[in-house]
Simulated assay, not measured.
Amino acid sequence: MTTERSIEPRQLGATGPTVFPFALGCMGMSGMYGATNDDESIGTIHAALDNGVDLLDTGDFYGCGHNEMLIGRALKDRRDRAMLSVKFGALRSPEGGWIGVDGRPNSVKNFAAYSLTRLGVDHIDIYRLARLDPQVPIEETIGAIADLVKAGYVRHIGLSEVGVDTIRRAHSVHPICDLQIEYSLISRDPETAIFPVLDELGIGVTAYGVLSRGLLSGSAPTAPNDFRAHLPRFSGENLTKNQPLIDELKKIAAEKGATPSQIAIAWVLAKNPKIIPLIGARKLSQLSESLAAVQVRLSTEELTHIEDAIPATAIAGTRYSEDQMQMLDSER
């Protein structure tokens, strides 16, 4: 590990806010990875804020509203210390299944009204459609969010898991703050076509899955409701094939005096100053480990060594199941 250095904030795109180098992803606090504890989650949010983390990422469908209500409780007396990034539009069945996406203009405003109430706030800092609605032109969805911006309910507009054409069309309606997309040492496809367009248009990146949902840190699904059990990279032979890559990252981390998670986060931070990693820390221990990653310096030579030792092309399994991959505009 290197000696502690000052933490430089990062601007989220040409039009977005300046934030701490990583954001706190709160999805895991609402049961996606197994049992959670609300008090522990709130304690983690408070600790993040106390350490300078000022962007919290959520979705109105995380725990069918539970996540927003949890964040509302956590921010009850400290709203001025946090910015909120909210995804909307994903539809859930009572048993928790995914049943589609709704990006219709009236639905956009309806979703926002409920989110504002659950969060207990008068505005959302960044608002974004969780997945592209193939039945609704993106111009109509972005236009509805732009109406919310004009009315003061939203500060900035973001996108999530969309491709180049959708990015350009959305940006032509209203300036886009950032694209939220999966990006990690073993999920590097956005580098080819998407990132160059974001650079051209002055759009930032909030990168989720920087640990590939715990795969890079050696975590594995154990609870019956852990959704990772259904992801190809964690399944059967794929997990066996991926183990040598995980072992290689452990070796590199040990040589650097860091943990695999810290190296994976530091790699994303070093790739581009316009990228803000979303760190899904559910516990204080996870948050502390992630905060230390900001202090890990990786030279150009070290980045090359890491990428050569853990090539993205060697990973077995896609990042989502086949049917979910087909829904991603970013994969087209």
Rank of each mutant, 00 (worst) to 15 (best):
G236H: 00
L278K: 01
R228C: 12
E289R: 04
L148M: 14
R104I: 08
G317A: 10
T192H: 09
L198F: 03
E40Y: 00
C64V: 15
L55H: 05
D60M: 03
D189N: 12
G25P: 04
A254K: 13
G16N: 02
L249S: 13
D323K: 11
G120I: 01
L239P: 04
L287D: 06
D189P: 02
K274S: 10
M69A: 15
A281T: 06
A130R: 02
L298D: 10
V121Q: 01
A193P: 00
K150S: 15
A113K: 05
A292R: 15
A82I: 09
A23L: 05
N225F: 01
M83T: 07
C64R: 15
A314Q: 14
H171M: 08
A281H: 05
G103W: 00
S261A: 15
P175A: 11
A112M: 14
Q180N: 10
F20W: 03
L216K: 06
L91G: 04
N110K: 00
V294H: 04
P175T: 13
L328S: 05
H46F: 00
A312K: 09
A35V: 10
N110S: 08
A82H: 08
T259A: 04
D199K: 15
L179N: 04
E191W: 00
L211A: 08
V86Q: 10
G65Q: 09
A253P: 01
G317L: 13
E140N: 11
H123P: 07
N272V: 08
G97M: 03
G152E: 02
L119T: 10
P134I: 15
G89L: 06
R10N: 14
I315N: 07
N37Q: 10
Q326V: 03
R92D: 11
A309T: 11
F234W: 04
I138A: 02
I181C: 04
E301S: 12
A48C: 04
D147I: 12
R131I: 03
I203T: 05
A23H: 04
R332D: 08
L328E: 13
E289L: 05
L75D: 08
A74L: 09
L269D: 12
E289T: 09
A193D: 15
F111C: 06
I71H: 07
T259F: 01
D125R: 08
S30P: 03
R81P: 14
S93F: 08
I167V: 12
G59P: 04
A48L: 04
T313E: 15
T166K: 11
L303A: 02
C26S: 15
M32K: 03
S285K: 11
R155E: 14
A130M: 11
V296M: 01
N225W: 00
D60F: 01
L201E: 09
G63K: 09
D125C: 07
M83E: 13
A146C: 05
Y320E: 07
G214P: 06
R118I: 01
L56M: 03
E68C: 01
R78K: 13
Q180Y: 00
G103F: 00
I167S: 09
K87W: 07
L91I: 07
R131Y: 06
Q286L: 13
Q295F: 11
M32L: 12
F195T: 10
V173T: 13
I186Y: 04
L84C: 07
D38L: 05
I45Q: 06
Y62A: 06
